[in-house]
Design a protein around this nucleic acid. Structure first.
Lengths: 341, 341
DNA sequence: CTGTTAGCGCCTTCAC
DNA sequence: GTGAAGGCGCTAACAG
């Protein structure tokens, strides 16, 4: 692999001159510039970023640390992040923590070693505080995505979990539901806390009772607790919920599968709503009533803010961007009244 | 940010000794090792990968160059790649070419500059040959995913497009269909070529006519040609297809949307099948009959092969792994005979 | 078991 | 407009 010296020799100039033409800075005569470019071409010379980074202390690499790219929500976040990164000349390394603090910590260590210029992170929960502290200690800029960490103030792009939840419950109540089960994520994750708070406060607003037997906590992962449905189904008729609110899309899918196994029909036997949308398949064959978040924008805006920080175009105060979810009412929460199509 | 020299000074040893404990190689006495570790801790020292790379000529970074992470197919590929990479101590940079050779070329340049140790690539088409040549010229190991490039022999992991298509058509013919439209991807992409070949040969096998008016070519992207459905719908009854085969999931979604707009019911008015699956939402609310590919394995195995090549554990001959698709028959290709549920 | 020397490829600084 | 010297942080090769 050719180096700047090889090019210099061929072009009969100094390495410094070659460096100048590569980086297009400093004064160069057209003639020598041409010679150098020909030499670069002839030798198939490609600048070595490791060497550049060593000097410049910039890698032009961002780290995107999410919980699971398989979740359509994070897929869109990733797409948004990558688009903005490309625009601004950065590359992005992605990592899946799987909601596991150990895995997350391992990645934090790796990204510190890589000297990435900045980090976009959807923390696995409040326990991520220690990892964020590491970033701060190493002075590497970061932006949180989707989830806050209790007690840390930082730049962040997230959705309005409270509002989305309230609107979803509003809808359910309008449909006549009074007993609504909440199948939540872990409350050490800020979104789950907010969704629970909104659930409770909205029920209270409607003077509906809060029944602890209808509130569950599982995790946001693909395989969540399937016994919840069983517990719900054995409840006496006067306590059994007529609607379920799942706190994210993965929980929704797991619960729906279980309901189906149990022979429970949605929406006729029980209504169903959830947070987060699915992939574009829903565009033509909609089913779930959801609070859909602008996930692409989480990534896109988060990356914009991050790069602003990296390049020092940023204000000192932390930015906090809260994006509203869109309530999309579909079949899963609407009791069939006409002939089914 | 502390360097190896700072650590050396604090621990009262030479930088080389520090290097040895970091890399856990070479003989070290327990005593000095401890001293060094304490110094590392005290200074919050983290090895600089750029510097290591400059010396070792290894970055421990892989490039995953796909067309669009938003496609659930590639999402799974990415997940598989990342899982295997982590196992083996690599990080992965991901990029979306959007089926655009220009964008792909730009990324190839970037990854060459980054000196990634290897590349996993789903080429945008046969025109990607020039990019692959660049990789070869720079001697950087690569593995192709999902798509072959006409005229290039390489390690590759892909699906069996021919078999998947044949099985899908078999199914349609069994359902009594004789006029089946093909809405294909661009034939400069190997999968589209194979799917077309299988489509034609299978129809011939059944002594069914090949009607050019039923064969279309659009692209594999999210927004494909929507006039195709219009063209299909104005065909005279004796020519109008009773079934549609879409060559990938994005095409399927676009066509389904258009059919819906046009008031055409699937599967009652027309049957529908496609290549590639969607996200897990389908697990409980299945609709599309598909040839589902083991996308996760594409990424997982591809990464395994790539790292084998990088680390020289590889045989000289190129490996070619062809994974069979799974035909999943669902609602979209089955005419309703009972009361709809 | 530990240290010294030299160099990876590039760029900053300062001459000319 | 161009070049020489030195150093970024680390490690291979050799010495002791």
């Amino acid at each position: 692999m050719a180096t700047i010296y090889d090019v210099a020799k061929l072009a009969e100039v100094s390495p410094m001159t070659v460096s100048r033409v590569i980086n297009q800075k400093g004064p160069i005569s057209e003639a020598t510039k041409l010679k150098v470019e020909q030499a670069i071409e002839a030798l198939n010379y490609i600048p070595n970023k490791s060497a550049q980074s060593l000097v410049s202390k910039k890698t032009k690499i961002l780290s995107l640390l999410i919980t699971d790219i398989s979740n359509p929500f994070f897929t869109k976040v990733a797409r948004g992040a990558e688009d903005k990164a490309l625009q601004l000349g950065y590359q992005v390394i992605f990592s899946n923590s799987d909601e596991d603090i150990e895995k997350e910590s391992k990645y934090i260590q790796m990204l510190l070693e890589s000297r990435v210029d900045g980090v976009l992170m959807a923390p696995s929960g409040d326990q991520s505080r220690k990892n964020v502290k590491k970033l701060i200690k190493s002075q590497i800029p970061f932006v949180l995505l989707d989830r806050e960490i209790d007690g840390v103030d930082s730049d962040i792009v997230l959705g309005n979990s409270y509002e989305g939840t309230r609107n979803l419950i509003d809808h359910l109540v309008e449909q006549g539901h009074k007993k609504i089960a909440l199948i939540n994520g872990p409350t050490y994750i800020s979104t789950a806390r907010e969704r629970k708070r909104a659930y409770i406060e909205t029920l209270q607003f409607y003077n509906l009772p809060i029944d602890e037997a209808l509130i569950f906590e599982t995790d946001y992962k693909q395989q969540s607790e399937t016994t919840i449905i069983d517990k719900l189904m054995v409840l006496p008729p006067e306590q059994k919920p007529t609607a379920i609110f799942a706190a994210n899309n993965f929980i929704a899918v797991t619960m729906m599968k279980k309901l189906k196994e149990r022979g429970v029909n949605v929406p006729n036997d029980i209504a169903f709503v959830c947070f987060d949308d699915f992939d574009p398949v829903m565009d033509y064959h909609p089913f779930f009533t959801v609070a859909a978040q602008p996930a692409y924008d989480f990534g896109y805006l988060g990356t914009q803010i991050l790069i602003d920080k990296i390049e020092g175009n940023s204000s000192q105060t932390n930015r906090r961007i809260v994006l509203p979810p869109e309530i999309v009412i579909r079949e899963s929460s609407l009791r069939h009244n006409k002939n089914p199509s």
